[in-house]
Simulated scan of single mutants.
Amino acid sequence: MNDQPRSLGATLFPVGLLLIAMASIQSGASLAKSMFPVVGAQGTTTLRLIFASVIMLLLLRPWRAKLTAKSLRTVLVYGVALGGMNLLFYMSLRSVPLGIAVALEFTGPLAVAIYASRRAVDFLWIGLAIIGLLLLVPIGETSTSIDLVGAAYALGAGVCWALYILFGQKAGADNGIQTAALGVMIAAMVVAPVGIAHAGAALLTPALIPVALGVAILSTALPYTLEMVALTRLPARTFGTLMSIEPAFGALSGLLFLHEYLSLAQWLAIACIILASVGATMTMRSESKPLVAAD
């Protein structure tokens, strides 16, 4: 790979794509929550991924991707991680405010960023992240306590998000933007049986179709396509840390669209997690090669 410094335009382009993707996906999450009373989180995830698969199939024509046995394995892991991330995140939204769910989920990419560096200063960022988690999940029943099951779902989504970053970067290097379509199709096939078993015929409710289509575009088709472009232009560690403002997007979206008001301690917790990620970004060494998943 060329070791020459990147131009300002080449650096800002993928960053701008990530900002658009984050705003889009959190707006879509707010819209998706309106579907929970009819088909539940499982059904909502299924409809979102199925509609997104159709959209991306038509636009990106993933059948043109050239897959080897090795790249197919990587894409499969990427797709399964994508499906798990979607399902577990929506499961968490049943009982946890959007901003808090995003903050807990964000521990996944933050872990990728810190593990990739493993420097002494990273212990500071680890400490900040832990403080944020303790503020979000306080010991005992208090006015700011959150549902522990919902929190566990959000943390599980974070694990899947970490796998999504690692395997998505490598899969994207093989087939570019078409990988996003392949990943969403695999995710839909993984999640669909769960959604069908839970919601059944309710998934065919006509009134849900335009809402599900909007969620598919805002939460999957648009942001994952943009993120795949960014993943192929940024190291995985940089990608993970640049996502640091995602919890803020989630909290603001929850406030604006769902009227979810957070306590001062919860806002401080989100700030701690954001600062941990920003700190990891500012203190990381410059890299000339992207971080990829181990074979």
Rank of each mutant, 00 (worst) to 15 (best):
218 L>N: 06
185 M>F: 02
23 A>T: 00
185 M>Q: 04
125 W>L: 09
129 A>S: 13
94 R>S: 13
264 L>W: 01
268 L>K: 07
254 G>T: 01
50 I>R: 02
242 L>I: 06
22 M>T: 00
105 E>Q: 14
283 T>A: 09
198 H>I: 10
162 A>D: 04
243 M>E: 02
223 P>S: 02
198 H>R: 08
59 L>E: 05
39 V>S: 11
61 R>N: 15
80 V>M: 05
93 L>W: 06
113 A>I: 00
251 A>Q: 01
107 T>E: 04
180 A>W: 00
152 A>S: 13
206 P>M: 03
224 Y>K: 10
270 I>V: 12
132 G>P: 11
149 V>Q: 10
245 I>N: 00
80 V>H: 01
226 L>G: 03
162 A>V: 11
284 M>N: 10
284 M>W: 02
240 G>R: 03
43 G>A: 14
162 A>Q: 07
230 A>L: 04
57 L>W: 06
189 M>W: 13
131 I>S: 14
50 I>D: 05
125 W>V: 03
183 G>I: 07
228 M>A: 05
281 T>D: 06
266 Q>M: 03
163 L>V: 14
125 W>H: 08
244 S>N: 15
290 P>I: 10
258 L>C: 11
233 R>D: 06
235 P>E: 08
63 W>T: 12
149 V>M: 07
70 K>V: 14
148 L>E: 05
7 S>W: 01
139 I>V: 15
98 L>V: 07
179 T>Y: 07
248 A>V: 14
268 L>T: 05
48 R>W: 01
228 M>L: 15
16 G>C: 02
37 P>A: 03
260 E>H: 10
97 P>K: 03
36 F>L: 01
137 V>G: 01
41 A>W: 01
236 A>T: 00
149 V>F: 13
105 E>T: 02
95 S>L: 15
215 V>D: 02
107 T>H: 02
121 V>N: 02
260 E>L: 11
141 E>F: 06
177 I>F: 06
260 E>K: 08
10 A>V: 01
95 S>C: 10
42 Q>W: 06
279 G>E: 11
52 A>Y: 02
54 V>I: 15
238 T>V: 14
192 A>C: 10
288 S>V: 12
271 A>V: 04
277 S>F: 06
16 G>Y: 09
290 P>N: 06
153 Y>C: 02
140 G>V: 11
31 L>C: 10
135 L>N: 07
15 V>Q: 08
207 A>T: 12
29 A>V: 07
193 P>K: 10
227 E>F: 12
63 W>K: 10
122 D>M: 01
73 R>D: 04
157 A>G: 11
99 G>V: 00
198 H>C: 12
263 S>Q: 11
24 S>V: 05
236 A>V: 12
195 G>L: 08
254 G>H: 10
251 A>F: 12
96 V>K: 04
223 P>M: 03
141 E>V: 09
254 G>C: 01
103 A>G: 08
106 F>D: 01
177 I>V: 14
208 L>R: 12
250 G>C: 07
10 A>C: 06
212 A>Y: 12
65 A>M: 09
257 F>I: 15
17 L>P: 06
193 P>D: 13
170 K>L: 03
